[in-house]
Amino acid sequence: MRFFGGQMSAVTASGNVASSLHPLDPLSKDELESLISALRRDGVIDHRHLIAMLQVEEPSKSALARVRPNQNSESVEKLEKIERAARVTVLDRSTGKVAEIVVTIAGHVVSNKVIEGAKAPVLSVESEMAISAAKHDARVIEALNARGITDIDSVRMEAWPIGAQIPKHLDDGRRIIWTPMWHQPTPESNFYAHPISGLHAIVDIDSGEVLAVENDQQIAIP
Rank of each mutant, 00 (worst) to 15 (best):
M1S: 13
R2Y: 04
R2D: 14
F3K: 12
F3I: 07
S9M: 12
S9P: 06
S9N: 15
V11T: 15
T12V: 11
S14M: 10
G15K: 08
G15M: 08
V17T: 15
A18N: 14
L24K: 14
D25E: 15
L32R: 14
E33M: 15
E33L: 13
S34H: 11
L35S: 06
I36N: 07
L39D: 08
R41D: 09
R41T: 09
R41F: 02
I45C: 13
D46W: 05
D46S: 14
H47C: 09
R48D: 10
R48Y: 06
H49L: 05
L50A: 13
I51M: 09
L54K: 01
E58R: 14
S60L: 11
S60P: 00
S60D: 11
V67A: 05
N70H: 11
Q71S: 05
N72H: 13
S75I: 01
V76H: 13
E77I: 12
K78P: 08
E80D: 07
I82V: 09
R84Q: 12
R84G: 10
A86I: 01
A86D: 01
V88H: 06
V88M: 14
V90M: 01
L91N: 01
D92V: 03
S94T: 04
T95I: 06
G96W: 02
K97T: 04
V98H: 00
A99R: 15
I101M: 09
V102A: 08
V102Q: 06
V102S: 06
V103H: 05
A106F: 04
V109K: 07
S111E: 05
I115T: 03
G117Q: 04
G117V: 03
K119P: 00
A120L: 02
A120V: 00
P121L: 00
P121I: 00
P121N: 02
E126R: 04
E126I: 01
S127Q: 10
E128K: 07
E128V: 02
E128M: 05
M129R: 08
I131T: 04
A133Q: 05
D137A: 01
R139H: 04
R139A: 05
R139N: 04
R139K: 12
R139I: 00
V140D: 03
E142F: 04
G148H: 04
I149A: 01
T150W: 07
D151E: 14
D151K: 15
I152L: 13
I152H: 06
I152C: 11
D153P: 06
D153I: 00
V155C: 07
V155M: 05
W160L: 08
P161S: 03
Q165H: 11
I166F: 05
P167Y: 03
K168D: 10
D171L: 09
D172S: 08
D172Y: 03
G173W: 01
R175D: 01
W178N: 12
M181V: 06
W182H: 15
W182L: 06
T186H: 12
P187E: 14
E188T: 14
S189W: 09
N190W: 02
N190I: 06
F191N: 12
H194V: 06
H194L: 03
G198I: 03
H200K: 15
H200C: 04
A201N: 14
V203E: 09
V203H: 13
I205L: 02
D206Y: 07
S207F: 07
G208M: 10
G208E: 12
V210T: 12
L211I: 05
E214I: 07
N215E: 11
N215Y: 05
N215W: 03
D216W: 12
D216V: 13
I219H: 10
I221E: 09
